[in-house]
């Protein structure tokens, strides 16, 4: 089964993160790096990426073949996606066990979603 581990951010957590001393932020990056390496090592990692700041996002609308874009960030969204890990593992329990190793899980900002199989039951 494939699972997506989603990491969210919101203005409050962003503030906390920015206020952290450099050493603690470094520890956060290292935790992600170690997590990623252990997933790759066990053959469970498919892809993992961190997303650029929401301010760089473009929201697009296509009407009658014409596309218009608007600049982010989007004030109506309370929480924004900051990054993700796409993994393949044995069970939801195992995926949750992995998700709990994401540092942001401490703040309740991590979500695990099973991937819909496009092929068949």
């Amino acid at each position: 089964m494939k699972y997506l581990i989603l990491i969210y951010t919101n203005p409050a957590t962003r503030e906390v993160w920015d206020a952290l001393p450099e050493a603690q932020r470094e520890a956060g990056y290292q935790a992600h790096l170690a997590f990623r390496e252990s997933l790759a090592d066990s053959g469970e990692l498919i892809v993992a990426e961190a997303l650029a700041d929401p301010a760089t996002a473009r929201r697009m609308t296509t009407t009658g073949g014409r596309t218009s874009t608007a600049d982010g960030p989007f004030a109506e969204a309370k929480e924004l996606l900051a990054g993700f890990y796409l993994i393949e593992c044995e069970s939801l329990e195992r995926a949750i066990e992995h998700g709990s190793r994401v540092p942001e899980a401490e703040f309740g900002l991590v979500e695990v979603r099973p991937i819909l199989d496009l092929h068949a039951p």
């Binding site: 089964m1 099973p114 991937i115 819909l116 199989d117 496009l118 092929h119 068949a120 039951p121």
Partner: peptide, 8 residues
């Protein structure tokens, strides 16, 4: 509740 798109 299903995780399979064709089944859904």
């Amino acid at each position: 509740r299903t995780l399979s798109l064709p089944e859904r």
